[in-house]
């Protein structure tokens, strides 16, 4: 009898261990899949060109160098002359692709565009979502479907018409054009997220606020916004990241240094004849820093923000 109990217990422990191992193994795989490219990006940005291109590859820098970052932050427009010819050779590790001086302005452009998109996106979406979720006006469903329908059309199909519209408005090569375009992408999604969040807030709170003397704007400000903080933070992050990472619209709508964003400028470093991987990777690291900092700042809100709308409270 006791032997049987012992066997049973042993089997249970083995099963528990087995399950733990399986979960750990899959978690490790997932981490490698997600974090691997980022780790390689960071590692190679700290290596010289020769170390990056070595076979077999150096997973960790044999000799850490900040030369690539130095090149980015200290570069100025310069012509390659006989004296500075070594800067034309990627193998030296001091190679500066043409347009390298655009990197920091592009960083600034990306940041300002992202910021405007994040702010305007939330401002526009909050009022629209409140109206659709809370005020039972006629045509409410139709409004919602119309907003969502705009996202059914693939971006690629919109590029040429958008370009023509922007050109006619004389907005090509402006950051404003990017802000407006990105808002068209982010606003429908944000409205959708916020509607489902607002609808979870008990209706009685709305009724209480109105009875207490709130106008719609005051009910939104005093009741809905404080209770929707996670969804609002998630929306801000979503809009900023969408704007930060966007490539195809920026490629078409901006063609000068004053308006180009980071993805466009970095992609320009991959050239036909010479490509400095070390420089591109260092630029890549700089490109991921702002979103990572933002994500870390708002981490605790994002988690609850992303599950928002999944469960009907």
């Amino acid at each position: 009898m006791r032997a049987a109990t012992d066997d049973g217990r042993r089997a249970m422990i083995a099963k528990r261990w087995g399950r733990g191992l399986l979960i750990s193994a899959f978690s490790a795989l997932l981490v490698i899949y997600v974090a691997g490219p980022v780790a390689w990006l960071v590692s190679s940005s700290l290596q010289s060109e020769a170390d990056i291109t070595a076979v077999p590859p150096n997973w960790l820098p044999p000799k850490v160098t900040f030369g690539n970052f130095e090149a980015i932050f200290s570069n100025t427009t310069r012509e390659v002359t006989y004296e500075t010819r070594r800067q034309g050779d990627p193998a030296t590790g001091r190679f500066l692709p043409s347009g390298a001086e655009n990197l920091l302005p592009a960083l600034w452009n990306s940041f300002t565009v992202g910021l405007w998109v994040a702010i305007l996106n939330v401002v526009v979406s909050i009022t629209a979502a409140y109206a659709i979720a809370v005020i039972h006006f006629k045509g409410r469903q139709a409004a919602l479907y119309t907003i969502l329908a705009t996202r059914v059309i693939p971006d690629i199909a919109l590029i040429v018409p958008l370009f023509l519209v922007m050109r006619n408005l004389d907005l090509v090569n402006t950051r404003f054009a990017l802000v407006v375009t990105y808002l068209a992408v982010t606003v429908p999604f944000t409205i959708f997220i916020l509607i489902s969040y607002f609808e979870q807030i008990p209706r009685d709170l709305y009724r209480a606020a109105r009875a207490d003397g709130c106008s719609h704007v005051q009910a939104l400000r005093h009741v809905y916004l404080p209770l929707s903080l996670p969804a609002l933070v998630a929306s801000v992050m979503f809009a900023f990241l969408t704007s930060w990472n966007e490539f195809i619209f920026a490629l078409i709508l901006t063609q000068n240094i004053a308006s180009q964003t980071l993805p466009i400028v970095i992609s320009g470093f991959v050239m036909d004849f010479t490509t400095s991987f070390s420089f591109v990777n260092a630029a890549g690291v700089i490109a991921i820093v702002p979103p990572v900092v933002l994500a870390m700042m708002f981490e605790r809100y994002i988690v609850s923000g992303l599950t928002a709308g999944a469960v009907k409270g």
Binding site: P202, D204, L205, R207, A208, A209, A211, V223
Partner: peptide, 9 residues
Amino acid sequence: MVFQSYALY
């Protein structure tokens, strides 16, 4: 107004 659900903020 007073509600069944209390509806406190």
